[in-house]
Amino acid sequence: MTFFFEVLIGGLLSGVLYALVALGFVLIFKASGVFNFAQGAMVFFAALTFVGFTEVLPGWTGLAPGSGAVFWLAFALALSSMIVLGIATEKVVLRPLVNQPPITLFMATIGLTFFVEGVAQGIWGTSVRGLDLGIDDEPVMFLMDNFNMLVSKFDVIAAAIALVLFVTLAILFQYTKVGRALRAVADDHQAALSVGIPLKHIWAIVWGVAGFVALIAGLIWGARNGVQFALTFTALKALPVLILGGFTSVPGAIIGGLIIGASEKLAEVYLGPYVGGGIEGWFPYILAMLFLLVRPEGLFGEKHIDRV
């Protein structure tokens, strides 16, 4: 039974990290109705930019490599880069395509993916980098000593950071003027424009916030697996989460992430041996597909009814 809970808790913690990537998709989809195919590339760009700055800043400023000052300065510069990227995307890619069909916007984000990946490697090079956030990746000793249960301290802290981010964004959406404007834009672009909500500013803010979320996701995933091109693959983990939780719901992303994380790990351990193993990659998609048959809009997604 201990092993079962070990797998379950590990899965739930991984699920929170999937939800973190899914959150970037949700933010942009909510505000603009665009499925941002480039979210994985943004995670890669953010992490690589952060690590790149930590490498060059000591030479530029004379600060000690690995110091807290270098970390926070690199964080600020990487965040600024993500905001600039977000605003530039809104101005150059999305604004000229206002009122175009969703598929056009989606195709534009595919193009954006290749651009962002290329720019990231063009600026910072193709080398694979390590990233140390100062969080030990070791078992939580209390659980190990008392229950012989292995739960990663890194995953617990990363999940806690992600949850703080979720709560902050939920408060932002629910209780601030910008949040209300975001929700209005999400409901109906034209109606929001007609009551004086500046659509382009809102889109720029949303892309900026999505860039911030990408940076946090990039740092956590980069610290787990290294800062390398494979960070773009984290988007693959977020897709079933979105299908399950709904494309427009922040709580949906969290719940979807937890379900996907736990179920894929349990399936790999208990079902995998009977079907040859290695099912972690496709099992979440099967689960999401089955879920679609029952609830096409996802757990918390908005039910879309067309008048005919």
Binding site: V7, S14, S152, W221, F233, E264, V269, G278, E280, W282
Partner: peptide, 10 residues
């Protein structure tokens, strides 16, 4: 391990 292998907890 399923491709790409960025999760291996199980």
């Amino acid at each position: 391990v399923a491709h790409p292998g960025n999760e291996q907890q199980s």
